[in-house]
Amino acid sequence: MIRIANVQLWVHDQDEALDFYTTKVGMEVRFDVTLPEMGFRWLGVGPADQPEVSIVLMAVPGPPVMDPATADQVRDLVAKGFAGTVFLSTDDCRADFKELSARGVEFTEEPDERPYGIDSAFRDPSGNSIRLTEMR
């Protein structure tokens, strides 16, 4: 059977992203490995009750992986919230909205009734779009 193990988000600053996802969103660190000889940091977080799933917080790379113009384009798309979306589910969207707001998460959309459930949205410090949904 095929399963999802990791998904990736481009982030502008891995330390800032790590603080946001652990301190404000309440996730835990899955791995944090730096390979200095490669200039690479493998950093992942995830929900405590889903140990098999990780969100990799990946710094936008430079050469030889990406040329400077492409890296700038990726950073711009991330900042605008158009480089992907993470969908989080919850049993109580309104309660989690209040708790995350109290921790400093700034929501772009407050919880709202939709045909499929209650949905809200926020962005991380890099601009990535995060949806928080209570499904019916």
Rank of each mutant, 00 (worst) to 15 (best):
I4T: 15
N6A: 12
W10S: 13
W10R: 09
H12D: 14
D13M: 13
A17K: 13
D19Q: 14
T22S: 09
T22C: 12
T23R: 14
K24H: 10
K24N: 06
K24S: 09
K24A: 11
V29F: 05
R30N: 00
R30Y: 00
V33H: 09
V33W: 06
L35D: 11
P36Y: 11
E37T: 10
E37Q: 14
M38Y: 09
F40M: 08
R41M: 05
L43K: 00
L43C: 05
L43D: 03
G44Y: 04
Q50C: 02
Q50H: 04
E52I: 01
E52V: 02
V53R: 12
M58W: 06
M58P: 00
A59P: 01
A59G: 13
G62C: 10
M66K: 04
A69P: 06
A69W: 04
T70A: 15
A71T: 09
A79P: 02
K80S: 07
G81L: 00
T85I: 07
V86F: 01
T90K: 01
T90I: 02
T90H: 03
D91F: 01
D91I: 03
L100P: 00
L100A: 03
L100Y: 06
S101M: 04
A102C: 08
R103T: 04
G104P: 09
E106A: 13
F107Q: 07
R114W: 14
R114N: 10
I118N: 08
R123W: 09
D124S: 05
P125Y: 07
R136D: 15
